[in-house]
Amino acid sequence: MTEITVNVNGKSYTREIEPRMLLVHFIRDVLGLTGTNIGCETSVCGACTILMDGQAVKSCTQLAVQADGSDVTTIEGLASNGDLHPVQEGFWEKHGLQCGYCTPGMIMSGVDLLKNNPNPTEDEIRHGIEGNLCRCTGYHNIVKAIQYAAEKMQGGN
């Protein structure tokens, strides 16, 4: 067993874990934050995307010990004081989800994308979310949702 301390959504957690525990299991099973989904488990689908030290990362392909000392943000940590993050709001307003399974990961990727490129073209959005698969193929409205967020975050709307 190894002791790790991870700051998740602004709260510090110290836990004893097996070194082989994946970060996504630490988030879901140890901390009980089940908003982050497990999809393909092979680093392809992006359902498990979280922010680790501010960058989008697939948490099924990281060991929890690698996150020791890191700041992690999950979908539960995006809203502040009950106000949805603009990307969350975009998914609401533009019907950016159908079954919803890819949505937490898709939103985290959208947040990461807009942080690095606040005013992306449609092509840049589509390219930027290439690491997230929507099995419902609802990409059209996902792109609109991220465009909505980009406008809102730049003071539009």
């Binding site: 990281q62 990727s109 690491g131």
Partner: peptide, 9 residues
């Protein structure tokens, strides 16, 4: 390489 998440790690 991969996608943006993969390229971060």
């Amino acid at each position: 390489v991969g996608d943006r998440q993969v390229r971060h790690k």
